[in-house]
């Protein structure tokens, strides 16, 4: 969306907001949302070589809403067990430490950051895209015979700057004024979400490869990433594939195959076909997080 396509009043308002937010972001004069406590603790437990599942289980049990969501996801078709999951302990045993940690982290981040009153539908779409990117990221890494562990986290957090921008816009506008159009907000998101995401990732002290993926995942910049985990390039392609999961009508296989990122990952047509075939499975998994 270009500024030229908005009316002069809106354009002036967008430019004023853009300018104010850019200054705030660059000067780090922002009140950034804190990483939800549970997510922080999940990250700590995941990164602790001596941590075991009992610590994670205890943490989840402290948060009733989180425990409920974990139970629901464990019972969803994507993770369906042979018999219904009826207890948290059972869901922990069924899902396993790594999935559980990922779920706890994502659910916690979703409830902490991906919630903005008045824009629920748009935020839900962003969240859906992020989840699909995380799930596709794992499959891309696997296809590349690369370790898949980092790809999910990079994917679900790569657009963390987008909901943050919405938060910041609302902070910077008069509560009495009419709600801003999504077109206006989206224009500012396109301009500033990468910068905002980078700042938030730094403030949250996310793992370095994840910070790098957030900063460099777009097509124009993934080649600037240096981490051997390849989070940025993997997330770049995952984001394109995820768009087709969120909006199946937008899928243009030929256009995706022609992207430079496909060439840079050295994916041949048969590799891409295999990834396209996963669309429904990914879609099902995304729904299991959201329904």
């Amino acid at each position: 969306m270009s500024l030229a396509s908005t009316c002069p009043t809106e354009q002036a308002e967008i430019e004023a907001l853009l300018s104010r937010l850019t200054i705030q972001l660059e000067q780090e004069a922002l009140d950034l949302p804190l990483l939800p406590v549970v997510a922080t603790q999940v990250l700590q437990i995941s990164g602790d070589p001596n941590a075991d599942v009992t610590k994670l289980s205890a943490l989840i049990q402290q948060d009733q809403a989180l425990a409920g969501q974990i139970l629901r996801i464990a019972n969803s078709p994507a993770y369906a067990a042979r018999s219904p999951i009826v207890s948290l302990q059972q869901s922990i045993a069924w899902l396993g430490m790594n999935i559980l940690a990922s779920l706890a982290f994502t659910v916690s981040v979703q409830s902490g950051v991906f919630k903005v009153k008045g824009y629920e539908k748009e935020i839900q779409a962003l969240w859906r895209q992020a989840l699909a990117t995380g799930l596709y990221g794992k499959e891309i890494a696997r296809r590349n015979r690369h370790n898949v562990e980092n790809a999910f986290l990079c994917g679900i957090l790569h657009t963390i700057g987008k909901p943050l921008i919405i938060h910041l816009i609302l902070q910077n506008t008069d509560k009495e004024s009419p709600q801003l159009s999504w077109t206006m907000i989206d224009t500012i998101i396109q301009e500033l979400s990468i910068l905002a995401g980078g700042k938030l990732a730094e403030a949250w002290q996310l793992p370095e490869p994840v910070q790098e993926a957030i900063r460099f995942y777009p097509d124009e910049t993934y080649h600037q990433a240096t981490s051997p985990t390849k989070g940025a390039i993997i997330t770049c392609l995952a984001d394109h594939l995820a768009s087709a999961v969120v909006d199946p009508s937008s899928l243009d296989e030929a256009a995706i195959c022609a992207l430079p990122v496909v060439q840079d990952l050295n994916f041949y047509p048969e590799d891409m076909d295999a990834l396209f075939e996963l669309k429904e499975t990914i879609q099902q998994s995304v729904e299991s997080f959201l329904t």
Partner: peptide, 8 residues
């Protein structure tokens, strides 16, 4: 191959 991209 994949052991070369361990993250921890």
């Amino acid at each position: 191959d994949s052991i070369l991209s361990l993250v921890y």
